[in-house]
Design a protein around this nucleic acid. Structure first.
Length: 277
DNA sequence: GGCCGTGTTGTTAA
DNA sequence: TTTAACAACACGGC
């Protein structure tokens, strides 16, 4: 499922091919998304030029030459890709933009329709995706800031890492991987996980996310890169999805628990991630 | 053939 | 403050 590394992989591939290009024509814009009314902003995209492409957490921001922004979130099954205009569309394609290069199209498909597409102005972008709703990006946050944000809460460290207002970009898979790398049990209170400093946890955040980016992300089921190929990091996962399999470090059986964070599958090694109580 | 699990964000209730 | 439940949805696996 797309988290920060998967989104970053897609941005790196798409940005150099889209920035500077104009939307020659909105080929298709459906109104079937669960939370977005894509069809309504046909007019706002036609004839516009992309001037920037950025990422914050799991959100992508495609800046336009009229200061508006096309905001993209992949949800669970969303895919953003570049395709030849003559290539058949993938099922559940909700947006097709013909670009001013070759006969390339920027496409968004999403079978589950949990993804989100918005066209917003600078003010809306600041309010809807500003610090009230999104914490610092997980790759940019400083150890002291992370420690500060985790110190004054009694929630579990896993719940806090999943909260996008605390730190943006970590989802269920990488939360488990990060906590294994940091040797912290997922039910540990957040304030305790950053004692005496947040540096070890932040190192794990950076190391795990960067390693996943180097391997083009993790494909469990739906995620593919902008080229349509799976990532490779699933082969290197230490705990996620490895219920009852031997821990790569100590050979103890990996445990699956659904009670640590409300209903979310949580994989961890009870020996390497000794509970701090 | 119907149910379950899958995970993200946002809202609402407790 | 925080958690749980739920909604939006398709689909693979049993």
């Amino acid at each position: 499922m797309p988290e920060l590394p998967e989104v970053e992989t897609i941005v790196r591939r798409i940005r150099p091919r889209v920035v500077g290009r104009e939307v020659v024509r909105v080929v298709h814009a459906s109104n079937k998304m669960a939370r977005s009314t894509v069809g309504s902003f046909r007019r706002g995209l036609a004839g516009r030029r992309f001037v920037a492409m950025d990422r914050h957490g799991k959100w992508m921001f495609l800046g336009l030459d009229d200061a508006n922004t096309l905001v993209v979130h992949l949800g669970m099954t969303g895919r953003l890709s570049l395709a030849d205009a003559d290539d058949p569309s993938a099922p559940h394609t909700h947006l097709r933009l013909l670009l001013s290069i070759g006969r390339q199209e920027l496409r968004f498909s999403d079978s589950r329709r949990f993804g989100e597409l918005y066209l917003c102005n600078a003010t809306e972008r600041k309010t809807r995706f500003g610090p009230t709703h999104l914490g610092p990006d997980a790759l940019a946050i400083r150890p002291r800031d992370l420690a500060h944000r985790l110190t004054h809460t009694r929630r579990s460290i896993k719940a806090a890492l999943l909260d996008q207002r605390v730190v943006a970009g970590v989802g269920n898979i990488y939360a488990d991987e990060i906590l294994f790398a940091a040797a912290i049990a997922p039910m540990t209170p957040a304030w305790r996980a950053v004692q005496p400093s947040g540096a070890p946890l932040l190192k794990a955040v950076r190391d795990v996310l960067n390693a996943a980016i180097r391997h083009n992300g993790t494909t469990i089921r739906d995620y593919v890169t902008a080229d349509g190929v799976p990532g490779q990091f699933q082969q290197r996962l230490a705990v996620y999805g490895r219920d009852k399999q031997p821990c790569r470090r100590c050979a103890t059986a990996i445990e699956l628990s659904r009670t640590i964070v409300s209903g979310r599958a949580t994989y961890w090694c009870p020996r390497c991630q000794a509970s701090l109580g």
